[in-house]
């Protein structure tokens, strides 16, 4: 049976990890490659790098980070952030990334999903969806630009559309849950996971190990992603896996 995946996410700016990193035995807390190698050893199933560089130089640096990471780790990793063309995808995949995450660019140009999928295969096209509950609609709305801009697009519709266009996986972030540490948005996750036939990575809201149990059991997620709780050592990947195993969830 397929194992549920635990995925730490690293925000990278100009080739350095930003946002809190509180690791012992880390010579350089800002080096994404070193941190990636530690998560690999800790039993992470995959990694996500989110490039938040705002400059061309910063993006060029990311290619080097990807190349070094690919030479260091033995698990798959996704790179997202600022990717808006198949040329961008090709550069990152050639450097050793396994999957490409697209978010705002996919909303702006939905054909990008199909183009990437056709050239590189559906398995490496991850469509990231930032969703927030819209009380007028009684369902979730898609936001872009790191959650700043509402799009007027319904998240469930967009998820299905992304699948139809060739996405191999969805990275679903609940903006309502993100940062709360109160747990994943189970309702949103279950609704999206139940609407598509491709894997869904749930993101936003993880505060402790039990939250991952919930997102798999009730949220029907295929993978759970978190950033700060892993970086700040509030909970380790190992502890999450132990908790999941104890609850009968299949993990590696």
């Amino acid at each position: 049976m397929l194992a549920k995946r635990i995925i730490p996410c690293l925000d990278v700016k100009d080739g350095r990890v930003v946002k809190g990193v509180n690791f012992v035995n880390l010579r350089d807390a800002g080096d994404p490659v070193e941190l990636a190698a530690i998560y690999d050893k800790e039993g992470a199933d995959e990694l996500v790098f989110l490039d938040i560089s705002a400059s061309v130089e910063g993006r060029a640096t990311m290619i080097e980070v990807v190349r070094r990471t690919a030479g260091e780790i033995t698990i798959p990793f996704t790179v997202g952030g600022g990717i808006s063309s198949t040329d961008d995808m090709k550069r990152l995949l050639r450097a050793g990334a396994d999957k490409i995450g697209i978010n705002t660019a996919a909303i702006r140009n939905p054909d990008l999903i199909g183009e990437g999928s056709k050239i590189f295969g559906a398995q490496c096209i991850v469509v990231a969806i930032d969703a927030k509950f819209n009380s007028e609609w009684g369902e979730w709305e898609v936001f872009t630009h790191g959650g700043r801009n509402p799009t007027g697009i319904r998240a469930l519709e967009w998820a299905k559309d992304a699948e139809r266009r060739g996405a191999g996986e969805l990275l679903l972030t609940s903006m309502d849950a993100d940062g709360t540490k109160d747990g994943f948005d189970l309702e949103l996750t279950a609704a999206v996971s139940g609407s598509v036939g491709i894997p869904v990575i749930a993101s936003g809201g993880a505060g402790h190990a039990e939250h991952f149990v919930d997102v798999f059991a009730q949220g029907k997620a295929d993978a759970g992603l978190a950033a700060s709780i892993f970086h700040y050592k509030e909970v380790s990947v190992r502890e999450v896996k132990d908790a999941l195993r104890a609850q009968g969830v299949n993990v590696r």
């Binding site: 049976m1 397929l2 194992a3 549920k4 995946r5 199933d45 559906a122 398995q123 191999g168 996986e169 036939g197 491709i198 894997p199 295929d222 993978a223 590696r252």
Partner: peptide, 10 residues
Amino acid sequence: YKVPHMGWNE
């Protein structure tokens, strides 16, 4: 069931 078969399996 979900396709692709994606992830860690025994």
